[in-house]
Amino acid sequence: MDLSLRREVHFANSAIAVEVEGERAAAIVKFLFRSISAEGTAQPHVTYRVWSGAAELVLRRADVTLYRGSSEAECADILLGDSTHALADRSSGGLLFHAAGLVWQGRGLLLPGRIASGKTTLSAWLALRGFDFLSDELIFVPTGSTTMHALTRPLNVKSPSRSALRPYFDFDRHAAQLLSTPRGDLIPVELLRPQNELSAAALHAIILPQYAPDAAFKLEALSPARAAFALVDTLVNARNLPNHGMPELARLARSIPVQQLVYSNFAQIADRLEAFK
């Protein structure tokens, strides 16, 4: 493992750079970015520096210190969140959704949703049910296409979701392979699904999940206009796109069936899993 290196991270026509020094720092960067392309045409617009010494980790973005301490998990959590935001900020040339992405036998499923919509927990559960996992955070659909490209990174499972996933995933047995903070766990995808095939996929369906405690299950088809309107909320790079991405959203909504999902537990979904395939 290189102890001093510079790595670029490319996604959705955007790029950042990460300069690393130290073994622990290198391990963090490998943990977070090993499945994301290091090559592309975009020029990195921000550089992170991760340094590890005997007892300390330091993370900087340009001249700003984002973390100084001894916790690999805290450092990784901050770097993951900040770098994801930085990549999204300059993305163009397509629709970038705040979304999970999965694949069932070559058919891509997009799960767009804001924070607390349940998309990470739902996508983790679907991966444990045999879906190939692409991302729990960002999915990019290039202009004019219906192919989904994923920012494939460790799942970021928030602490409140642990109880929902615990029947299906042994957090304690895998503790040494996770990076855990009081806020949640970073879980490598291969722990959920060892045979996971990470790739882009043709988009087959879009489901907008909304977790609501005690809610009755609902899976409702949306008209193309209602679908495009709902997708606006999850489009993170609208200001970088012509006409705020509206023509592209409309094109996608005309091409791909969109449904609204409301659920309160996985048993409801297990009974209707064919709708997700």
Partner: peptide, 9 residues
């Protein structure tokens, strides 16, 4: 405007 099946955005 985007018109989709008689509805508008």
């Amino acid at each position: 405007l985007e018109e989709l099946d008689g509805e508008l955005l």
